[in-house]
Amino acid sequence: MDKKMKKSCNMIDLISPLIDGELSPKDNASVLQHIESCAICRAEFNSLKSIDNMLRNIKPIEPSFDFARGFWKKIDALDALKTKKSRWSISNLLSWRWRWGWRPSLVSAAAAAVLLIVAGTVSYKQSAPSAVDAMGMLISEDVALYSDYEIINNLELFENWEEIIIVEEI
């Protein structure tokens, strides 16, 4: 054993984390074992433990009687401010619409017009005459053509002249 008193020890830095339980299990065991044989580290360990105890023994203070009341007053003030702000922003929004109401209306009108045009176009295309109806459409627009179509439609009647005369009389 070294009888000459050491003035310092290279493990002294580990005493603080040892007290705080922040060493690994291996280091913890190693430092604890070291302390048993090292007077310097043992003195350091005892000093730091004493300081911790002294600090912890200082009497804590109790909250003043109006601490909680003062806090809830601040909360009420905060809530009142929030309510005021939300009312302000609603009224601000309404006045904005009053002052600038035509702008959103113009935009809405334009959007509606576009929609109508699109809807109308779609509707027209959907109702556009097919090839089969095209002739019918054409005939209905032209009366003369219609009469010719009647004749063509009833061509089988030309096989019996007597029937043609009857048709003409009708």
């Binding site: 203070i61 909250p63 003043s64 601490f67 003062g70 806090f71 601040k74 909360i75 905060l78």
Partner: peptide, 14 residues
């Protein structure tokens, strides 16, 4: 200390 503590709880609340 009490002012600071109230501020802490205000922040927790908010």
């Amino acid at each position: 200390a009490e002012d600071l503590a109230q501020e802490v709880f205000l922040r927790v609340y908010r």
